[in-house]
């Protein structure tokens, strides 16, 4: 399997001098095509910061990110939006759907941004919403949808431009456990159908069985790696395990 996202020495500081915070600290990470990776760790350990860096939303202080074979052009910020709309999909904790647009239009907006318009956009958006099981909610506005439904629309929007990798920041934080479970089932299906790589930040231990790999963060570093299927746990701090294949 090939690597789609690779971070090399990715570091991000916030603030200056005394108040300087190292949110992400020299992280090396490689995510393989089609993988479903979960990112876990205590609040403030740098999960959100890391996926924003990998997705080309936030510029690293040090290190580089290679996405789909292309180094992200952080030195030329004007080029980043293209990468984001063509290669990356994002799902946010607070859904962030546009309130005055229907579910269908929210998905179409992502297509519009990428230059896909008219009947083609409508068809693709309807198809995506059908995939996430919302074909009966096309013309509802976010206010008329449940949390789970809103998050499904978010996933449909994130997948609209057929991204190589989808980053979701605590997508289940505002959902109950049954909704969360359903959403994860859906995410797995979507991954099969779209052959998309998915990175999910979550606090929900119960979702761990859905992941191929779980990365644990602490103080801006990835400190432990789990593979639930193989019942394998590798401590990154253990020098013996440094050779782990998916880590550099």
């Amino acid at each position: 399997m090939s690597v789609v996202v690779e971070g090399i020495g990715v570091t991000r500081y916030f603030g200056m001098g005394e108040a300087r915070v190292t949110a992400v600290d020299h992280v090396d990470i490689a995510i393989e095509s089609g993988e479903l990776v979960m990112l876990m760790g205590d609040s403030g350990c740098g999960k959100t910061t890391l996926i924003s860096l990998l997705g080309g939303i936030l510029t690293p202080s040090e290190g580089k990110v290679i996405l789909d074979g292309e180094e992200l052009p952080f030195h030329r910020p004007a080029l980043l939006p293209r990468v984001r709309r063509e290669k990356v999909g994002f799902v946010f904790q607070m859904f962030h759907l546009i309130p005055y647009l229907t579910a269908l239009e929210n998905v179409m907006l992502a297509l519009d941004i990428a230059g896909v318009r008219g009947a083609e956009a409508r068809r693709r958006a309807a198809e995506l919403l059908d995939r996430v099981g919302l074909s009966h909610r096309l013309h509802h506005r976010p206010a008329q949808l449940s949390g789970g439904e809103k998050q499904r629309v978010s996933f449909a929007r994130a997948l609209a431009n057929r991204p190589k990798v989808l980053f979701a920041d605590e997508p289940t934080a505002n959902l109950d456990s049954r909704q969360s479970e359903n959403l994860l089932e859906l995410v797995r299906e979507l991954r099969e159908q779209h052959a998309t790589t998915i990175v999910i930040v979550t606090h929900h231990e119960s979702l761990k069985p859905h992941a191929d790999r779980i990365l644990h963060m602490r103080d801006g570093r990835i400190v432990q790696e789990e593979r639930p299927a193989e019942n394998e746990v590798a401590s990154i701090d253990d020098p013996e395990k440094r050779e782990y294949p998916s880590l550099r």
Binding site: I57, E86, G89, F92, A110, A114, A158
Partner: peptide
């Protein structure tokens, strides 16, 4: 700003 931020996050460039 929230909406604009989301649009930019999902790839809207300055021209858009």
């Amino acid at each position: 700003t929230q909406e604009l931020g989301v649009m930019k996050a999902i790839g809207a460039d300055n021209r858009y």
